[in-house]
């Protein structure tokens, strides 16, 4: 991978809340069209890492670079225009709106205020995650699984180059999990974007991702192929005592 090809680069990122160091000296580089699994025990700092990347939190030290440009500390509403979109661990679709309206917000504002072709982009995103039939359903009436799909559609509608998924499988049953795996693969194949995917279902990550990063107590303890990571002693220790997810 050429250095100028790197999409996202975290340089020695540290995040403290008061005395609590939640992320420490984290370096991560994400290349084009990579699908990277990000795993780690509860409280490892995975969601915080997403909040730092999306500028919800400014890192206490270190830099975030996107397409070679320093984006540390920019206004969060500019993040999605630059090409970074995300989903949330606790689903945050707009409940009073229909599926289509949710995705339209992404297609218009997320893409930097476009009006032309926004409807097409929204419909295509719904199609991609298989929600076309629920287009005009109010989100409040949708199942958790559909809302998780909708969050992905809303993010995809903003035409991101990098998609951050925060536990998209949490609370889903095995059938829904399989559907989610299919959607993640399809999004990557059809949109050519890169993904950072946080998940507790480690087996799914190991099957789908060619690269896995492990966080523990705010430190990156492993970064490699699934095989490398599962044989890493630090990773085995970090997960010891954790229930097999």
């Amino acid at each position: 991978m050429q250095p100028d090809e790197t999409l996202l680069r975290l340089e020695a990122v540290q995040k403290r809340f008061g005395g609590l160091v939640v992320l420490n000296n984290v370096d991560i580089a994400v290349g084009p069209n990579e699908l990277i699994g990000l795993i780690g025990p509860n409280g490892a700092g995975k969601s915080t890492l997403f909040n730092v990347i999306t500028a919800i939190y400014a890192p206490t030290q270190g830099r975030v670079l996107f397409r070679g440009k320093d984006i540390t500390g920019i206004a969060p509403h500019r993040i999605s225009r630059l090409g970074i979109a995300r989903t949330f661990q606790l689903v945050r679709t707009f409940l009073t709106m229909t599926a289509f309206e949710n995705v339209m917000v992404g297609a218009v504002y997320g893409a930097g205020g476009r009006v032309k072709h926004a409807t097409e982009a929204a419909n295509a995103a719904l199609e991609l995650v298989g929600l076309t039939a629920r287009r005009d359903m109010r989100t409040a009436h949708m199942t958790l699984s559909d809302r998780r799909m909708l969050e992905i559609a809303r993010a995809v509608a903003s035409d991101p180059a990098l998609l951050l998924l925060d536990e998209p499988m949490a609370g889903l049953n095995p059938t829904e999990i399989q559907r989610m795996v299919d959607v993640i693969r399809r999004v990557r194949a059809e949109r050519g974007l890169s993904m950072l995917w946080v998940e507790h279902k480690v087996d799914a990550i190991m099957k789908v991702c060619s690269r896995v990063i492990v966080l523990d107590h705010g430190e990156k303890i492993a970064d490699g192929t699934p095989r490398e990571v599962t044989q890493n002693r630090k990773v085995i220790e970090a997960y010891l005592g954790e229930p097999a997810a």
Binding site: T54, I56, A75, P76, H77, R78, I79, S80, R81, A85, R86, F88, R92, F94, L95, T96, M97, E101, N102, M104, V105, G106, V108, Y109, G110, A111, G112, G113, V115, A118, R154, S158
Partner: peptide
């Protein structure tokens, strides 16, 4: 209107709306 939808989105969840490109 789409601007109205942005206002609704922000009223429901300002952080999520912000990350969808809506300026608070």
């Amino acid at each position: 209107t789409i601007v109205g939808k942005a206002v609704r989105a922000a009223s429901e969840d300002m952080d999520a709306a912000t990350l969808m490109g809506i300026s608070p």
